[in-house]
Design a protein around this nucleic acid. Structure first.
Length: 402
RNA sequence: GGGUAGGUUGCGGAGUGGCCAAUCGCACCAGACUGUAAAUCUGGCGGCUUACGCCUUCGGAGGUUCGAAUCCUCCCCUGCCCA
């Protein structure tokens, strides 16, 4: 009994809702007495190959379960990805091709492994049970729900009200996700709050199929670096796991001050009293401590510290980074007198997407050669080996001449 | 099947014959400032062998016109109403 409460305590940290807590408790009890671990399901769409910090919130919860001795079923929705989960979207998702999906799969494992113990994680693909379903199977599944029930879902009703298209296949999505729970005989399913409808569909479906209903745990949705919208790659306010430590550090430094508290709470183990004090006494320091901790978690403490030093160097002291990518100045760029047009140099070095953009940057005084502003777009420069070209705050190239 | 409203530059959304590369908001970029790639302010934000010049763009294809995102024809896509 005592152990059950202890487990429940750990599980409850940072959750938004547990449906139903009583059921979960009973499941834990049963698991403890029988020695059979709970089957904890978490599903992800292999639509975008990158996990970002927002995804780590529920994944960290999986880790909690893992540490408590339970079994994590990491579901890759390779089949449902073809449908596209409409959750949280006002529009239809593009359908991915088989190749796209396949290409994305392997990277998940690697990234999830930064949080989860892969030895104890079972990766499952829902195509293995969804693909063989027959039409009559599908009809049986669809007969469990009514149109009105599915339409009740927030994003569907919103789209319906706004006169935006909803395709039949999207309607199927929650049902198939629910069916996944049946196929896996899940005891618990974890998801972000926006997944609630889909998670509950699992309960309905399991009950209809004569299984014990899964407990549903919803986790908060991490706000993006803008501090307003949820973290999502499409809003470009995300912090991907797969990146350079320096890049991750920088992205974390760009979160709005108001988001710091949430990031500390959901992404670190820092004690509440400590980070609240840090934030109120010195916000800048608190933010870099946060960034250092998170970078440290994924790349190691040393990398976290190095990223911080580098950040200070480049953005606070406005010096060149210690490691600047080199760019070989080909003789073809130079004119007869050995001079190079700035705009040619910038675009050849890949520091601007187009020559027009390069021109604008020059005019805006964003371009420096060895700390000297080059403001004339028609300027011709004499390049010496080892000079540093800086474009904007973040783009550098060390010029090499052979 | 009938009727009707729409499809505009990353997103949202103006524009309904020349003043439109196309208002504005968001996102993004740059500069200033600062406590940071926060906040705030200012500017930029299709492309071009170097730019009061040229080229491409407003669902697609044709057409009218000196001139079209704006008018016409056909086609494709979406919403709503009726059946």
């Amino acid at each position: 009994m005592k152990e059950t409460d202890r487990q429940l305590e750990t599980i409850k940290r940072n959750t938004v809702e547990i449906i139903e807590e009583k059921e979960l408790k009973a499941k834990i009890d049963k698991s403890l007495s029988s020695g059979i671990p709970l089957r904890v399901k978490y599903g992800i769409d292999p639509t975008a190959p990158d996990i970002h910090l927002g995804h780590t919130v529920p994944i960290k919860k999986l880790k909690d379960f893992q540490d408590l001795g339970h079994r994590v079923l990491f579901l890759i929705g390779d089949f449902t990805a073809r449908i596209g989960d409409p959750t949280g979207r006002n529009e239809t998702r593009p359908i991915l091709s088989d190749q796209d999906i396949k290409r994305n799969l392997s990277r998940y494992r690697e990234q999830a492994g930064k949080i989860l113990d892969l030895e104890k994680t079972e990766f499952v693909y829902n195509s293995s049970w969804l693909a063989p379903l027959s039409l009559s199977d599908l009809i049986r599944i669809t007969s469990i729900f009514t149109i009105a029930q599915v339409l009740e879902r927030d994003d569907f009703s919103k789209r319906y009200r706004e006169g935006k298209p909803i395709f039949m296949q999207e309607f199927l999505y929650p049902l198939l996700q629910g069916y996944d729970s049946c196929a896996l005989q899940a005891d618990v399913e974890i998801g972000a709050t926006e997944q609630k409808f889909n998670l509950l569909a699992g309960r309905t479906m399991q009950e209809a199929m004569g299984q014990e209903k899964q407990a549903v745990i919803t986790m908060p949705i991490l706000v993006g670096t803008d501090g307003r919208m949820k973290m999502s790659k499409t809003y470009n306010n995300h912090v991907p796991l797969q990146s350079q430590p320096e890049e991750m550090f920088g992205r974390l430094m760009s979160i709005t001050d108001t988001a710091m508290e949430e990031y500390y709470r959901l992404l670190t183990r820092e004690r509440e009293a400590v980070f609240l004090e840090d934030i109120s006494s010195d916000p800048r320091k608190a933010k870099s401590k946060l960034a250092r901790q998170i970078v440290g978690e994924y790349f190691g403490l040393e990398a976290g510290e190095k990223a911080e030093t580098e950040f200070d160097r480049v953005f606070r002291e406005k010096q060149a980074p210690s490691d600047i990518p080199g760019f070989k100045v080909e003789p073809g760029l130079e004119d007869v007198q050995g001079m190079v047009l700035v705009i040619d140099l910038i675009s050849a070095a890949g520091l601007a997407p187009s020559r027009s953009e390069a021109r604008r940057l020059v005019i805006q005084k964003a371009v420096k050669l060895d700390d000297e502003i080059v403001a004339d777009p028609s300027a011709r420069l004499k390049i010496r080996d080892g000079q540093v070209l800086k474009v904007g705050k973040r783009k550098f190239a060390r010029l090499e001449k052979s």
